[in-house]
């Protein structure tokens, strides 16, 4: 294999590994669920994209063709990671997971759980339309 290819693949692999490690460290160390949600869904996706790019270049350097599987995995992951993050945030909101005390605008969660806009004037406790 060419030396240039080796250096590029090694750099991409190392960057990807470091990003994935930072994401997992954030998952283990951050304080509440809403903060923890940020680390794996953003940093880990970037890291896996970098590893997949390295794998694609490796296939090109050794076999001589561009593999489509890695592109498919990258596309699928970039589409699905935000969906999972959104649905998990919704789960946490409806289960009333505890927040950090210094979370800003925490009172809007009550309105959001009833699917009302932020400037709704309805009194939440006394509205009979809502369950």
């Amino acid at each position: 294999m060419n030396d240039v290819f080796e250096i590029i693949i090694g750099l991409l692999l190392t960057i990807g590994g470091v990003f994935i490690f930072v994401g997992s460290l954030g998952l283990a160390r951050l304080k509440d669920f809403y903060a923890r949600l940020h680390a794996p869904t953003k940093a880990t996706t970037v890291g896996l994209g970098s590893v997949l790019l390295a794998s694609m270049i490796y296939t090109y350097a050794t076999e001589g063709y561009i593999s489509v599987n890695e592109l498919l995995i990258t596309l699928f992951l970039v589409i699905t990671a935000p969906v999972v993050a959104h649905i998990l945030a919704k789960v946490a909101m409806h289960h009333q997971v505890k927040m950090m005390p210094k979370t800003r605008n925490a009172e809007l969660v009550k309105l959001a759980r009833k699917q009302l806009p932020p400037d709704a004037t309805v009194d939440i406790e006394e509205d009979s339309r809502l369950p």
Binding site: L13, G16, G17, I20, G23, S24, L27, F33, R36, L37, P40, T44, T45, G47, L48, V51, L52, S55, E70, I73, L77, A81, V84, L88, V91, A92, H95, V97, K98
Partner: peptide, 23 residues
């Protein structure tokens, strides 16, 4: 502490195992 944390950890484990398989 609760179920959504465990679900997030499981989802991260899927992504990490994909990377491990590729490596």
């Amino acid at each position: 502490p609760n179920a959504s944390d465990r679900l997030l950890a499981l989802d991260t484990m899927y992504i990490n195992s994909i990377a491990l398989i590729l490596v």
